[in-house]
């Protein structure tokens, strides 16, 4: 049963990834990317990370996708349509490079031994993630808010019209 869910989710993910890579129209690419995000949220649920599945749906599938669609509506459509498609020669050159970089990593993952921690998590996923986030990782959490503020100011500065 577990492998059945794995097969379904990973097949969905692979089809959506190929759609994201090779579709021509940018709106279709964004729809395929939305499908990728939904598949990854399903994988997170399967792996037992419920908090991240919900955050993936809220942040990616709502905020970021809507942002992309908003930017596409801002730019004139002829300009978006003018350069679409892929670089053929670079694609042919990139395939063997990525293949020979995939194989050693996959070999290391398959043959390596992983550390096994002694901890047994008895409480729920959201409670344990929240406890870890607000005790051990409180300072990076605050730094993340500063990063978001900086990005917001930078986006406003970049996006305004030149007088």
């Amino acid at each position: 049963m577990e492998w059945l869910i794995f097969g379904f989710l990973s097949l969905w993910l692979l089809v959506s990834v190929f759609g994201t890579l090779f579709l021509k129209n940018p709106v279709h690419v964004i729809l395929a990317f939305l499908s990728v995000i939904l598949a990854i949220a399903g994988i997170f649920l399967h792996l037992g990370a419920e908090l991240l599945a919900g955050l993936q749906l809220i942040i990616y599938a709502v905020a970021i996708i809507v942002f992309y669609v908003l930017v596409i509506t801002t730019i004139p459509w002829e300009k978006v349509k003018k350069f679409e498609g892929i670089y053929k020669r670079e694609a042919l050159l990139a395939v063997p490079f990525l293949l020979i970089s995939f194989l050693p990593i996959a070999y290391m993952v398959l043959e390596g031994k992983f550390a096994v921690s002694e901890r047994v998590i008895t409480e729920g996923n959201i409670r344990s993630v929240g406890k870890t986030l607000f005790t051990n990782y409180l300072f990076p959490f605050e730094v993340a808010s500063v990063i978001l503020l900086t990005a917001m100011i930078g986006a406003i500065l970049l996006g305004r019209k030149e007088e």
Partner: peptide, 16 residues
């Protein structure tokens, strides 16, 4: 996820 949100804000601002 946080860094992705920041990156998409700045990146799409640059694209525009």
């Amino acid at each position: 996820l946080t860094v992705a949100a920041a990156e998409v804000a700045v990146g799409l601002g640059l694209v525009v």
